[in-house]
Amino acid sequence: MKELSLNILDIVENSVKAGASLTEILINEDDENLTIVIKDNGCGMTDEVVKGVIDPFYTTRKTRSVGLGIPLLKLAAEQTGGYITISSDTAEESPLSHGTTVKASFNKSHIDFTPLGDVISTVKTLIQGHPDRDFLYIHELKSGRIELDTRDMREVLEDVPLNSIEVISWVGENLEEQYREINT
């Protein structure tokens, strides 16, 4: 993966497949570290499956469908001296608060740090592909905070689908403006 925003897209696609109605993408950044948290309310995973998604070679045929998404994120984090953690509760373990949280931490000054890249494009792609799901995007930087919540959008749009081209363009322009504002 050339950009961390592509890893984010990949991991959130898993949240969507896990049936999450809401997936939160939280990015926190200071001079030294960048932390990405992806938190969903999907079906969750048992401890055994969590182990499986971290190490691709642990995977048995039964869990093979989990693939390379998490190992690639882990590689991107660890090659900067960072780490990832995964916590997950299945609906059986925790009927009211099931879901998965993936956290990845990166050392920004490391030579092998992958840039965050076009994260706006990732948010647009997610909404375009999954207009029936909700996403909360928050990027906290030293200079300010970027936030987009599809639940607010849905309230305004009512029965107009979130993946209408005008709406997707609005998402892009809204985020671009927010980023411009904190950079000036």
């Binding site: 993966m1 998404g69 592909g129």
Partner: peptide, 23 residues
């Protein structure tokens, strides 16, 4: 196709191009 394989190979700009060009 937007799985890990597709995304890593550059599916995101391809998808966006599809949406834009169709429009």
């Amino acid at each position: 196709g937007m799985a890990t394989c597709g995304i890593a190979a550059g599916a995101r700009p391809v998808l966006n191009a599809c949406v834009e060009e169709v429009n």
